[in-house]
Design a protein around this nucleic acid. Sequence first.
DNA 1: AGCGTAACCGAATGATCGGTCGGTACAAGA
DNA 2: TCTTGTACCGACCGATCATTCGGTTACGCT
Lengths: 211, 211
Amino acid sequence: MVANTPPAAARRDSYTVESLLAVTVEVFNTRGYDGTSMEDLSRAAGISKSSIYHHVRGKEELLRLAVGRALDGLFAILDEPGALEGRPVERLEHVVRRTAEVLLAELPYVTLLLRVRGNTAAEQWALGRRREFDHRVAELVRAAADDGDLRGDVAPRLATRLLFGMINSIVEWYHPVGGPQAGTPGDGDDAADRIVEAVVRLAFGGLRSKG
Amino acid sequence: MVANTPPAAARRDSYTVESLLAVTVEVFNTRGYDGTSMEDLSRAAGISKSSIYHHVRGKEELLRLAVGRALDGLFAILDEPGALEGRPVERLEHVVRRTAEVLLAELPYVTLLLRVRGNTAAEQWALGRRREFDHRVAELVRAAADDGDLRGDVAPRLATRLLFGMINSIVEWYHPVGGPQAGTPGDGDDAADRIVEAVVRLAFGGLRSKG
DNA sequence: AGCGTAACCGAATGATCGGTCGGTACAAGA
DNA sequence: TCTTGTACCGACCGATCATTCGGTTACGCT
């Protein structure tokens, strides 16, 4: 392998692609990708506009890196044991719960992904990968419906879209307390846990009380 | 009433603000507001860039007119008899159904509204009005929960957000056949009806089969 | 026919866009 | 101490942005 790289933090005022990306995604999410200028980014990152080009090839690469990270997190769910073993309805519940969890854990990146419209090449690539994810989930819904475990009066494809529409809508209003860097691994974020539980309960049980 | 205005269609090659708006909203929705140039609009409308300024004050006014139309449609729901009379849970079901219906009837305008981020003054005005609508609905959910008609293990505010997140997500994938001008009043659009029914069933009953 | 005016246009404006360029500061290895 | 390479910068580039301006066209009305 390559020689161990010197720790990036040792160099003074040093930006990683990763840390630059974190700042970038925040700005993209507040002002929109098209509404964000490279000068906006340089101001937010505290370095000059031209310095950004030392780390990445351009604006579009920042977008591609960000949405790629979100997509990697989502696709990893489909390879988890809980998504591969058991009855389809149980595998579906696992995917629903984990999708909500990943969305909350990678909130800024998933937010950006969900707002992509397909204007540039990077955006169309992201849209294609999203479609593939939706397709895989739709198959799971269909399998659960074939088992008779899902209600028969709503088409599986339609149910999939509405279900994930509900999950994805979390990015429209949820903002973790103390900014995005809060919620360290293993600390058990209360608010996020409540949201995940609500999603699973509403998705499978509905709003109406049983009484 | 006012004197009958000479029919706009009588003048040759004449654009109404309304017809210009319809073209504009389509372009805004495909390319995004910030990603749309006035030249994009002029090309789509078939008139020159400067001619657009004869009808409206500028790009931002087009946005304000479009989202205003969507908001008027949504707020009108809250004044309907079905939203004012009966048990809260029944009024809520009426609002849910009608919101989905209005969203489908005014699809391009509501789509644009839901993508507004608050960059310009017009966008912030729209966000404020949206918040007010959400607030009024959240009160209805709380009232239904107080009656014991909604499940007690999900907070009303959270349920409201997820519920309307599901409804609003329709704009992400639904495209009426034959373009936006199809679906004349009273013709009973099959696909749209199925979506509305699915929304109401999933919202109140959930995915899981009763068996 | 002649007037008023709504609808329209091409060309230009300053501002801002994403991106490039030549060069400087500085830490690490020799 | 000298060399090398990373991180960074100010100044600049052509392109594109929303908007403006000075007209021209053609319709409705008298």
